[in-house]
Design a protein around this nucleic acid. Structure first.
Lengths: 194, 194
DNA sequence: CTCATTATGAACCAATCAGTCCATAAATGT
DNA sequence: ACATTTATGGACTGATTGGTTCATAATGAG
């Protein structure tokens, strides 16, 4: 097989670059020209490989999810403490505060920008959130087994609560909240686990 | 004074219409044409009365805040129970789930779409959130005086926590979460007040 | 070598973008 | 009635929008 001239660019790198652009600027305010610039591709190569703007965006969203989930799973399995995993998650969100370009989380950004209007996007976002919830539920289970958190907590609803809490923290970060305020809220979030 | 031809449209109604448009579709994906259509104004009238797109958006953001704050203050003062005020707040967020066009909250939307990139917008959003926090703090105080919630709660951080929690709920709503899940998260949020 | 297939770049498209300008209409204070 | 001031609609701008088309280049299979 493998007929014809082979692709002269790294498809994965291009997807990464496009993802980063959408991540920073959102869907509506990144133009195709922006995507051409950041990927370095020519117009026809981009359209041929990734389809139109909205198709490319969907691919980026999936790509983002896959990377994120893989990273979270690796982190969770590398840590003995389920509670520590969650604490680190919150700390990572807070660490972004103060930086000039706070890009946040592509899933949260997309939920707020597009999911209210486009059911297809809403579905993709909800799928991603669902996977994250599952991982957090696993972390909560681990924490319960270790006796790090209250054993009476209902894990699945609590995972939902944590994801929602992180989303809230993220919009605080975007609006420029100080690290002190973020830490206080984060601590209160963790306190519900005791 | 009052020279020249008087304005032939209700400036407040136009601002309201523009605000609604930004509220529904965000900043980047509403065009000047959209704003002309929804206000019914001519181009020159719109530019003369409200300046350019970003100026108009800022005005809409302030207008939104003013309306929201006024409404919240009226609600708070009309209710005997501070806890009930907060419960109603959460219920109102949940009530939007399931509707086709979930426009959410303009402040939360703007925080996520623009505040990470534009410091001026971030400031305006943070100002709005600050006012909301103050009102919620007042509600918490009232609830403490009534013995409705734990008297040992530190009010200001808790107000921050509630606002953050509402933002989290809002992105859940946008991503299409079911009312059941939302109610569970809301209940857990309220449970931190006990 | 040749043919089939794919990648690529450049030209091109109509539509829309935000924004300006100006001639005209309308109202008020004098 | 008149002059001044403002409101308004429409024409117009150059730039950018997302997207297509096509001729050409490059490659692997036979």
């Amino acid at each position: 097989m493998a007929l014809g001239r082979p692709r002269q660019f790294d498809q994965d790198k291009s997807l990464n670059a496009a993802m980063l652009q959408f991540w920073r600027h959102g869907y509506a305010s990144t133009s195709m020209q922006d995507l051409l610039n950041c990927t370095g591709l020519s117009k026809s190569s981009l359209y041929q490989s990734f389809g139109n703007k909205s198709t490319l965006f969907s691919s980026c969203l999936v790509h983002y999810q896959d990377r994120l989930i893989a990273d979270l799973e690796q982190q969770l399995s590398s840590k003995l403490s389920g509670l520590q995993f969650i604490e680190d998650l919150l700390d990572a969100v807070i660490a972004e505060a103060g930086s000039a370009h706070r890009k946040g989380c592509l899933l949260v950004n997309t939920a707020n920008e597009l999911a209210g209007l486009d059911p297809h996007v809403a579905g993709a976002v909800d799928l991603g959130f669902g996977k994250i919830r599952k991982i957090i539920a696993r972390a909560l289970n681990k924490a319960q087994q270790n006796g790090e958190i209250c054993c009476e907590i209902d894990v699945d609803p609590m995972a939902d609560f944590i994801v929602s809490g992180i989303s809230g923290l993220r919009t605080m970060v975007k609006s420029g909240a100080s690290q002190d305020r973020l830490k206080r809220v984060s601590a209160m979030l963790l306190n519900t686990l005791k």
